[in-house]
């Protein structure tokens, strides 16, 4: 589904990704772990098409097409979803309007009929249950005045509504208490299908107790320094990152 080869990217003239290669297939869950500043979030944002990063080399192919050629909205319309580490507040635009606008854009791109507000409400009633949110949040402005937990749940709600093929969760666990973490993780698990894939970017292993990965990749200083199965995450939990960085010769 997604094939990244030797990807390099920079922001503000500073090289952040220094040659990433990664393949994600349908039905898989990948975890990208690593210390702060390793480039995890950059990788997530580059996949989603953030214009603030410059891709300086390598290729990214998504369903056989050149992903890097596509604008962010086209990527979303083709099924890529990024759950933001810091969801943006948009006071003045209601969640209901925002979600329906996004939903209809994506339906249009798939050649499906757009839905009217009443039909959309039916869709929402069902999706809200997944993240244990109530209908009144639909009338609130997008993320405005939301608590940290509400913002992250709202990201998962959007994911539920847009039902992406490839979901990238960027530090979705950061700042969540254990209840919110459980709701968010269960939401992600409920949305899992054999034909979609999930990339979980996280600093901590605890999220992976809930969302069990098929593969774990450790990123350090812009490179993947180790890949393994879910047991790698447990090892990291126990031993920290330092041993891996040393083994990779990445700390000088």
């Amino acid at each position: 589904m997604l094939k990244i080869e030797n990807l390099t990217a920079s922001a503000g003239g500073k090289q952040i990704l220094k040659g990433i290669s990664l393949a994600v297939n349908a039905g898989e869950v990948h975890a990208i772990m690593g210390p702060n500043g390793s480039g995890k979030s950059t990788l997530a944002q580059v996949i989603a098409g953030h214009p603030g990063y410059e891709v300086t080399g390598g290729t990214v192919t998504y369903e056989g097409q050149d992903l890097l050629e596509m604008d962010a909205e086209v990527r979303a319309q083709k099924g890529i979803f990024l759950a933001f580490q810091y969801p943006v507040e948009i006071p003045g635009v209601s969640n209901a309007y925002f979600l329906r606008a996004a939903y209809n854009e994506i339906r249009k791109a798939r050649g499906e009929e757009e839905v009217d507000p009443m039909e959309f409400l039916d869709v929402m009633t069902e999706k809200l249950k997944i993240v244990e949110m109530t209908e009144d949040m639909l009338q609130r402005s997008v993320n405005a005045g939301f608590s940290g937990g509400e913002k992250k749940r709202n990201e998962i709600l959007q994911m539920a509504v847009l039902s992406p093929k490839l979901a990238v969760l960027d530090e979705t666990d950061s700042g969540l208490d254990i209840d919110a973490l459980r709701i968010v993780a269960e939401g992600v698990n409920k949305l899992k299908r054999p034909d979609n894939a999930t990339v979980v970017v996280t600093h901590y292993q605890r999220l992976l107790n809930y969302i069990v990965p098929d593969y774990v990749h450790v990123l350090a200083q812009g490179r993947i320094v180790r890949s393994g199965g879910k047991e790698l995450a447990l090892e990291l939990e126990e031993r920290g990152y330092d041993w891996l960085l040393e083994a990779a010769g990445a700390t000088a």
Partner: peptide, 17 residues
């Protein structure tokens, strides 16, 4: 970027914001 990443086109994004 947030709005575009949800599939909403550039012109519409500007209008909404």
């Amino acid at each position: 970027f947030y709005m575009k990443s949800r599939g909403i086109g550039a012109e519409r994004t500007r209008a909404l914001l």
